[in-house]
Design a protein around this nucleic acid. Structure first.
Lengths: 177, 177
DNA sequence: CCACGTTGCTTGCAATTGCAAACACGTTGG
DNA sequence: CCAACGTGTTTGCAATTGCAAGCAACGTGG
């Protein structure tokens, strides 16, 4: 157990560091950790905690997620779509509600796959975290191409009437720390 | 000193746990950590490492990211990475479907805001999804009861029955790399 | 009444993290 | 030649994690 298979996390960090052409001490300073410790991390002798990992990611100017995945702390699930990923990561809804949303979304996808093979072409999705929603106002001319059953609309009416007015609600602020 | 404010991470975990109606020991077993340690984590006396956090997330059947964010170990990737934004940017669903998802999500949020500090209202209605560790983690179609109105369940039934069966996702092979 | 099965919490203790200080090795250059 | 500065590494050590064992309280029911 002395040598926990930290995986390539250390290698990865060192790789990124050398690639950025900065010295171990520099990164250590930027990340707010001690140089010796960073050295040990890079060689897999120590298993950095998440906090340290996060700081190192900052010092390297890379996504913390990349590091977490490399460290095996997050499953590298290739997201089916960003919607599912974000729903899963949302902290503002209950697990039950989460499941409902996921079910609905997947059923939508399935419907579309069955009746609208054309949509398939746009399936590609980038894995980059950067949000680049070229939000062209999304108002497609759906007309009737939306094959989703009336039941949904009917069921929603009583709720949309009271809640779906504000386009973008002001964030209730998720205070942290 | 060392116990400043580990944030609401412990609270959050306990919240999720009670909501899932599982005991501290059960979650501890499912997550592979000791019961006393989990107890201390939930009360903010200890700052769990990323590995532990990850296992707890698994035991709770929630996204590890949600926990990391709650723990403040990973910045909210981007301010606009909330569910609504991503849904709006999604090209895989039709405009009508998009609207349905948005409405549902907003109604969920509204529900939660109503009984914010006292989630008992919802906890009372929720049944544990899967206390068993080696459960298949099926999404359990919300037919019988749910935190959402019966209309949703009714509308969903014909679809969840045919689509939301898979353990996680059928993966139609649209994967990237 | 007392064995028994829950719940969650407190107590030592081994193992580990993370750091300050010092080490090894190379390059300048006065 | 050897001080000065650069790199990364090793060595103790305080502080912390994480756990096994045990404790207190709340039922059940034999």
């Amino acid at each position: 157990m002395a040598l926990p298979k930290v995986g390539s996390i250390g290698e990865y960090i060192r790789e990124q560091r050398t690639q950025a052409k900065i010295s171990l001490r520099q990164l250590a300073a930027a990340a707010g950790v001690s140089n010796p410790y960073l050295s040990q991390i890079e060689r897999g002798l120590r298993k950095p905690s998440a906090e340290i990992l996060n700081q190192i990611a900052k010092g390297l100017h890379i996504s913390a997620q990349a590091l977490y995945i490399q460290a095996g702390l997050i499953e590298d699930r290739e997201p089916d779509s960003d919607v599912l990923t974000v729903i899963r990561a949302d902290t503002l809804i209950t697990e039950r509600q989460r499941q409902v949303l996921i079910d609905i979304y997947e059923s939508f996808r399935k419907e579309n796959r069955a009746g609208a093979p054309d949509e398939d072409a746009r399936a590609a999705k980038s894995a980059h975290p950067a949000p680049e929603p070229q939000n062209g106002d999304t108002v497609s001319p759906p007309g009737d191409e939306g094959p989703f059953p009336e039941e949904f609309a009917a069921a929603l009416k009583p709720y949309t009437a009271s809640s779906a007015n504000g386009t973008t609600e002001p964030k209730p602020g998720k205070g942290n720390s």
